[in-house]
């Protein structure tokens, strides 16, 4: 699944370690989500969305969006 996590992180000048600390996950987990190797669970997706003050759809794209 595609996502804008890396861009959003870059806008705040956060490292993967910074983001991992805020989400209470490992640096590997942030890396795996950013590179699309791991799709986060719904609770983690909500946590990410709240952290960036966006909706889940504004961060993650499953390629099924209409319009």
């Amino acid at each position: 699944m595609k996502n804008r996590l890396k861009v959003l992180r870059a806008e705040r000048n956060w490292s993967q370690a910074d983001l991992a600390l805020r989400l209470d996950v490992s640096r590997q987990a942030v890396n795996a989500v950013e590179t699309g190797k791991y799709d986060p669970s719904l609770p983690l997706a909500f946590k990410i969305a709240r952290l960036f003050d966006l909706s889940i759809e504004e961060i993650f794209d499953d390629g099924q969006r209409r319009g």
């Binding site: 490292s15 993967q16 370690a17 910074d18 600390l21 209470d24 996950v25 490992s26 640096r27």
Partner: peptide
Amino acid sequence: AAGPRTPRE
């Protein structure tokens, strides 16, 4: 190189 470890790590 990857930055500081998180408490969970």
